[in-house]
């Protein structure tokens, strides 16, 4: 397996009225070819911002990528001009995004067909007719019945699940190498969620693309991803294979997350254990571990040392940003 994209020490800061917010503060990860990875974390931990930063989709101002590199196809794509021709051919062409909120992510005054074909015409250099044919194929693929007729429909004539299918079709439309699915199933009911995740997995395999699933839902990643990165307060605090993370979590935050997930094989009436407290305010981050105030395992040493860097554990893949051993 070769590495398709590598993100190194990415830092994205936002200048707000209240001060500097370090939304992404030194994140490194990689995606292999034909791989599905999960980026997990609470709302506001910087997981979406990390993904949008990789294709320079951060609104500047207020956001700013201050440091880091994103190596894709042999070059650092953060060095490309933000809205220049090269960056735009990657954005949407080689790396596409499936956003959360299907209800609001499609242009309400443009037909579904046009929203698909404008990207296809742009990146695959197809004629209008060919692009239209491809749009029909894509809608067929994502399971929209009578795709041909529905091409001239508008988003409001589609249900939420159907719209997310359209978003998936859009994400696939230009044969991307990487598809970033940012909370792809948040606004949908559970049955639809499962269908769409399965669909995404199938089409990503068929298209030989890699998939990044960004979610706060551990249940989603457990079934579909190979490796997981857990983010907290703008940093990755644990990473490893799906099995590593679920069977042997090595960071108190991950352990807390897993305890908060209901399990079917547990006795009835067993209470879920929430993580007490709130995520830290990104405006004034302490030098010590950001999870310290909420950590049930905190020891005196935690208060004295700076936030631990990720360290690699015995199996060579699993990493944790905690100096304690569990």
């Amino acid at each position: 397996m070769s590495v398709l994209m590598e993100v190194k020490n990415l830092k994205t800061y936002f200048n707000t009225e209240a001060g500097l917010v370090k939304a992404v503060d030194g994140v490194s990860y990689h995606i292999n070819e034909n791989e599905t990875i999960g980026i997990v974390g609470e709302s506001g931990c910087g997981k979406s911002v990390t993904q949008l930063s990789t294709i320079q989709l951060i609104a500047t101002p207020p956001g700013r990528i201050v440091e880091g590199g994103v190596f894709f196809e042999g070059r650092d794509i953060l060095k490309l001009e933000k809205n220049g021709q090269e960056m735009r051919s990657i954005r949407g062409g080689k790396i596409s995004v499936i956003f959360q909120e299907p209800m609001t992510s499609l242009n309400p005054v443009m037909t579904i067909g046009r929203q698909l074909t404008e990207a296809i015409e742009l990146h695959l250099k197809m004629t209008k007719e060919d692009a239209k044919k491809r749009a029909i194929e894509l809608l067929d693929l994502v399971g929209i019945p009578s795709a041909k007729q529905r091409l001239s429909d508008f988003p409001h004539q589609f249900s939420g699940g159907m719209r997310q299918r359209v978003m998936i079709a859009l994400g696939l439309s230009c044969n991307p190498r990487i598809i970033i699915a940012d909370e792809p199933t948040t606004a949908l009911d559970v049955t639809t969620q499962a269908q769409l995740l399965k669909l995404m997995q199938d089409v990503v395999r068929e298209f030989k693309a890699s998939l990044v699933i960004v979610t706060h839902n551990l249940g989603v990643v457990a079934r579909y991803v190979e490796r997981i990165y857990v983010m907290y307060a703008g940093r990755i605090i644990e990473s490893g294979s799906c099995k590593d993370i679920f069977a042997h979590p090595r960071h108190p935050y991950t352990m807390g997350l897993l305890r908060a997930v209901p399990r079917l094989n547990e006795p009835k009436g067993k209470k879920l254990v929430p993580i007490v407290g709130l995520p830290p305010n990104l405006l004034n981050m302490p030098d010590t571990c950001a999870f310290l105030p909420r950590c049930p395992y905190a020891v005196e040493k935690c208060r004295q040392i700076p936030w631990p860097e990720l360290r690699t554990l015995e199996n060579g893949v699993h990493q944790t940003a905690c100096h304690l051993d569990f």
Binding site: N83, M87, G92, S96, S105, L106, L122
Partner: peptide, 9 residues
Amino acid sequence: RTAWSKGLT
């Protein structure tokens, strides 16, 4: 944001 992600000008 979706439109931006398509790589449009």
